[in-house]
């Protein structure tokens, strides 16, 4: 009995907090499928607003997905080898590199964006393409990929595994693909989910870097809040939730699978 009281307290507090966040979100999503929000649910449910969102903003949704996938590709190609180098050759140099790489996380996104605009603003074609946003997202998400992969690789004796493969005749590239990548896979998976989720949801940087022709989903969302009727903004939010939720859930599952694996001897 004595132990139940703190538990009940904690539970009510959690529920209360959840309600504080969840109820408005639910209300907003509900608004997206309500005919006329001012008259409430009684005005009837409809998919009209979602269709309207698709008509107006489908391009931002596709662009966000494309940018997320390109960002993922870039962070994989850069992040996995960098994480491997950090783990196999820990030195003062790699530590400094790690610090530099993590810096953009501490600096506000707006400042990073400003720096990028000053530096690359002159390259007009690049600056006007979605690739400019991809570059910003890579700067922002790379440390997450590197950290996730490095953590996984540090947990195995990757150096000795590689020496084993080398003694069997495997050259460096072959060892990297056959031994290092599989060993890093749980970290690669967790890092990938993180990168895609962060990229799809990123607003600060993206808002500074976008042009009218390279709007992403969150930028479009801000746009709609400012200029569209409430039902459309709400339907748009609903679409965003539907896209991001599976990613968040997958991230949780991956994190749990990883934790389970590390608990084994």
């Amino acid at each position: 009995m004595r132990r139940r009281l703190p538990f009940m307290l904690a539970l009510s507090l959690t529920l209360l907090t959840a309600m504080f966040l969840v109820v408005p979100a639910l209300m907003s999503m509900l608004a997206g499928v309500t005919s006329v929000y001012a008259r409430g649910i009684s005005s009837g449910l409809t998919t009209e607003w979602i269709i309207e969102v698709w008509r107006l903003y489908a391009d931002t949704i596709w662009r966000s997905i494309l940018i997320a996938l390109l960002t993922l590709l870039a962070t994989l190609l850069i992040g996995v080898p960098v994480a491997y180098a950090f783990v196999v050759n820990p030195s003062r140099f790699t530590r400094i590199l790690d610090e530099i790489m993590t810096l953009p996380l501490a600096v506000p996104g707006l400042a990073v964006a400003l720096a990028m605009l000053q530096l690359y603003g002159g390259f007009t074609d690049f600056r006007r393409s979605s690739l400019f946003i991809v570059a910003g997202h890579v700067v922002f998400t790379l440390p997450f990929m590197v950290r996730a992969v490095a953590a996984t690789l540090s947990a195995v004796d990757i150096r000795t595994l590689e020496e084993g493969a080398a003694s069997l005749g495997a050259r460096p590239l072959r060892r990297f693909l056959d031994i290092v990548v599989p060993a890093a896979m749980p970290g690669i998976l967790a890092g990938s989910l993180m990168v895609v989720t962060l990229s799809i949801g990123e607003f600060n940087l993206t808002w500074m870097l976008h042009t009218p022709l390279t709007k992403t989903l969150p930028v479009g969302l801000a746009d709609s809040y400012a200029s569209m009727r409430l039902e459309i903004a709400s339907a748009y939010t609903l679409v965003f939730f539907i896209m991001i939720m599976p990613l968040l859930i997958a991230m949780q599952i991956a994190a749990r699978a990883n934790a389970g694996k590390e608990a084994l001897p």
Binding site: D157, T160, E163, G164, S167, P182, M185
Partner: peptide
């Protein structure tokens, strides 16, 4: 290089490939 020496090596930790 070790890749070309054609030596069989048994490590203390065995270094078996977990994948």
């Amino acid at each position: 290089e070790i890749e070309d020496r054609n030596v069989g090596m048994v490590f203390q930790s065995y270094a078996l490939f977990p994948n």
